[in-house]
Design a protein around this nucleic acid. Structure first.
Lengths: 193, 193
DNA sequence: GTCTATAATGGGATAGAC
DNA sequence: GTCTATCCCATTATAGAC
């Protein structure tokens, strides 16, 4: 499915996202994106009406994939047991093609808040993710840990951080740390995995 | 000390930083900063040679305060015991006037990497902080947890996140979570605090 | 120490040919 | 579907008066 008719649109999404992650959304100009694609600015405007729409389309793609995970999670009866699998599925997403998008979101929060304020399809879904991930909604520490578990996955899959570690490992380590953050408090030692 | 002669420079730092955190570094123009201060752009250029210098001066202030904490930490013999106190001192910094700067750093990483690449006085010091915070340098998971502990402090002190939590607490919760992240693995349950 | 006025540059976006 | 050429606008930064 999806064929290959006019993959230019996808090439724009990929190159643009890479540049946005590397240099930031505001610092990256359409001229720069066009140059890397060997096309002109006007060509970009054929595929996307505005610069913002490029980001919006990428965000929509992530939202769609996130919905699959969320639908699965909401259908589970035993949420305590589902939490671990939920985190694994999120990790798979971040290890795959959505790592850059997540990193973009984490490193460009002002742009997301300011330029995409209400048009961001991820805010509500992130709330849902945290809702599934956290055991006791009345426990602020658990709320914070749930957020940190996602941060762990994103940081752990960041090539830059992977280079720093002596051991070298990372996506696996990130998942291990993330799982520990959402596992019930008070009785874990070295179980799971 | 510090008197009050020409507090305009400090007012610029504060207002500018607030706007940088709120809207992002690139989206905030000097005109906007000047308007909030009821002065003109040219006035800013009397106190700071460039827009970048405003950020640099704020970063330098944080670096100086960080050095105090680092000097104390490096002087400790029992690093295992010092780790907890180290984190408390960092928490104090973030609870105080440096919360916005830390949030700025966390939410504007592309700008910091791109525009301040080698001129950022914090990169080396952050490495030092993590070096003190982590027990086993060969353990990638511990490295990641050390980084997350700082993220926890910053997020926990973010007013926006404080509003989300039902309980309401936060700086204390953030410290609790952060401490747990750097405490030796495998034998903690609910101790400390 | 702060102002007005302006230079110089680069950005996003559009019109219309091909 | 991609191009050339152009418009309009905001930005950083400077010059020089007060």
């Amino acid at each position: 499915m999806a064929g290959r008719r006019s993959d230019t649109r996808e090439r724009i999404q990929q190159i643009a996202l890479d540049l946005f992650v590397e240099q930031g959304y505001e610092k990256t100009s359409l001229r720069e994106i066009a140059e890397q694609l060997d096309v002109t600015k006007a060509a970009l405007y054929y595929h996307f009406r505005t610069k913002e729409d490029i980001v919006a389309s990428v965000l929509d793609d992530l939202a769609a994939s996130l919905d699959e995970v969320l639908d699965w999670g909401k259908a589970q009866q035993d949420l305590v047991q589902a939490r671990e699998e939920l985190l694994r599925r999120l990790a798979k997403l971040i290890e795959g093609k959505f790592g850059p998008v997540m990193r973009f979101m984490q490193e460009n929060q002002p742009a997301l808040k300011h330029t995409f304020h209400e048009r961001n399809p991820l805010v509500g879904r992130m709330q849902d993710v945290f809702g599934l991930l956290v055991a006791d909604e009345q426990d602020p520490a658990a709320q914070l840990r749930a957020r940190l578990s996602l941060v762990a996955l994103v940081i752990g899959n960041n090539p830059q951080f992977q280079g720093e570690a002596d051991g070298g490992a990372s996506p696996e380590v990130a998942l291990e740390v993330a799982l520990d953050l959402v596992s019930p408090r008070g009785e874990q030692a070295g179980a799971a995995t």
